[in-house]
Amino acid sequence: MADLFLHQLVLPVAYILAIVVPLIVAVAMFVYWERKVIGWMHVRLGPTKIGPWGTLQAFADVFKLLFKEVILPAKANRFLYYLGPLIAVVPALAVWAVVPFDSRMVVSNANAGVLYLLAVNSIGVYGIIIAGWASNSRYALLGAMRSAAQVISYELATGFCLICVLILAGSLNITEIVNAQAGSKGFFEWFWLPLLPVFVIFFIAGVAETNRLPFDMAEGESEIVAGFHVEYSGSPFALFFLAEYANMILISFLSAIFFLGGWLSPVQGWVHLDAPGWINWLWTGGFVWILIKAFLMSFLFLWFRATFPRYRYDQIMRLGWKIFIPIAIAWLFVSGCMRYFDWVSVGVGA
């Protein structure tokens, strides 16, 4: 009985907390980092007041949001209005169950990990649509409409990109996919090289799916004010915020996992040294590498935001359907050929 209690309740909750708490802290620090980086790019300072160098700014914002009044618009649908942010945030956190941080560091090493990832991740957009519709505001409705169209078309592109990865790796298990990128030629073993166009498309589609600049027309600050969450305040708004940033971090991690060798070291197979364990990860791989890679990828999000203008709604559709999906499909055949004719040798795992 005690054993059952431990395995069915205590450990799962502990696992969940072990993922969600660092994730939420990471979101907070990422918001701070975003404001700092964009500040520097914009010849200003960013937050400086709260905590040393402003590091606690994000926490101050979170508490401010939590203590604010939650306003329900007069003609909003109460149930759906509150359901929207929940539907947005739950999948954004649940996806992390299959994300591996190291060869053994994963909550659920599911065999169909990639399928779970795609399935859960695509639920999030319902939160946006429901929120936009339930707020009973025209700006919000426009934002929801835009978001729905955008996410559907870009999810197709993402799906095709992932199929290319699956063909090369030969597995739906995410840990296996990373292991398939192991080898003796350092970072040339990773999938970014044979799948370069797909890698670019995957990341850009990821930016689009998270509704970030230059694809942020679901929020479209200067067109539809704040889009789907224009009527939200306080903690429901904080949930949307959390979901968006958790998704950004997720896309960064996924790019690192699928195309940049996850926790593998960029000098794998080149450096062989007998060194104490605490420094060994530098060439044998370890979770620090995936953190570094994800951090670099997430920096791109901020860079885009600081520099690019925003696309128009129909232009995003055109980019998705007429450019990204055809290229991804074409590369599907190319990667099939790579696999069939053994143009690329896929790691030791395969």
Binding site: I38, V43, S222, F308, P309, R310
Partner: peptide, 16 residues
């Protein structure tokens, strides 16, 4: 105008 079209950076540069 750049800010309206989403390019935030230009706004702060011109104000400098």
């Amino acid at each position: 105008n750049a800010l309206d079209l989403g390019a935030m950076g230009v706004f702060l540069y011109t104000f400098r």
